[in-house]
């Protein structure tokens, strides 16, 4: 018998979060304020995602946590253990077996299904925050659908770098209305925001919850002559040879050697198990 209430939070807190999630789903991309609680982990460790997961989980769920795509980083392991202890849910590292996936800064490579829920940990939920620091003003801008400033930012990218250089936290417009911060996922993941699963976003420190229902139109902002482009490192994965996955660059030594590996560890592992071999895995075997 667990000494915690199911999924740690008290029932009144969960009801408050659940009401915010429902309003978030009803107005896709709009940031719903909620009374974020202090969690037994520091801000920046996913307290928003954890609270949304706690309000969403049922005892029958299978829970997966990824941090930058990896299942085995401190943050992911801690949150997985947290819910093993407080909710008694099954956990997994396999994307296909999970019913609720909490993520920091990546969308899994495997296509998510209708029965899955993706919960994002969001540091700064307001896409306009670095352009306009005042909350009163950004609220007004959202209410008036005044997003010219965001296009100016993208335009300045082009004028300085010759291309839209924003490579992560790339702003999107949801359902033709709200400009939304997709949490800092790489822009490679932006096209996947239109998916079959329910997407929930929780920002603990900033006290905001927002959501994207399944099959919702999500458009990355761009210009006719500079269209949006989902980019990744121009290499195959050195372990599994995947050419379609987002890659991390890893420095190997002080002689300039480096390798590229899938950021999604489960995707890479499942491909390696299936017999796919990348450049360095070949050398290792030889």
């Amino acid at each position: 018998m667990s000494e915690y209430n199911f999924a740690y939070l008290d029932e009144q807190t969960k009801r408050m979060i659940r009401r915010a999630i429902l309003k978030g789903l009803a107005v896709p991309g709009y940031q719903v304020p909620f009374a974020s609680r202090e969690m037994p982990m520091p801000y920046g460790w996913g307290t928003g995602g954890v609270q949304v997961s706690a309000a969403t989980l049922t005892p029958e769920d299978t829970f997966k946590v990824i941090d930058q795509g990896a299942d085995d980083t401190t943050n992911a392991v801690s949150i997985r253990k947290f819910f093993e202890n407080t909710a008694g849910v099954e956990t997994t590292e396999e994307t296909e077996k999970a019913t609720v996936i909490q993520t920091r800064h990546r969308i899994p490579e495997a296509k998510l299904s209708e029965d899955q829920i993706l919960v994002y940990q969001v540091p700064i939920p307001e896409p306009l925050r670095f352009l306009e620091p005042r909350e009163t003003e950004t609220r007004k801008m959202h209410s008036l659908e005044e997003y010219g400033l965001m296009h100016v930012k993208l335009y300045e990218d082009i004028s300085q770098h010759g291309a839209i250089s924003t490579s992560y936290a790339y702003p999107v417009k949801v359902s033709d209305r709200y400009v939304m911060e997709p949490s800092p996922i790489p822009k490679f993941d932006n096209p996947k925001l239109e998916m079959d699963a329910i997407q929930l976003f929780g920002a603990g420190r900033e006290q905001r919850i927002y959501a994207v229902p399944p099959h919702t139109k999500v458009v990355s902002l761009d210009f006719e002559d500079y269209p949006f482009e989902a980019t990744k490192a121009d290499h195959p994965c050195d372990l599994c040879g995947a050419e379609d996955s987002y890659l991390d660059e890893v420095i190997m030594d002080d002689a300039g050697n480096r390798m590229f590996v899938c950021s999604d560890t489960d995707y890479c592992r499942s491909r390696c198990t299936a017999g796919h071999v990348g450049r360095l895995a070949e050398e290792g075997a030889a």
Binding site: R18, L25, T56, I198, A211
Partner: peptide, 13 residues
Amino acid sequence: AAHAFRAAMTVMA
């Protein structure tokens, strides 16, 4: 409540 909310969330989404 968790079961009921999941159903409510699913239909709202």
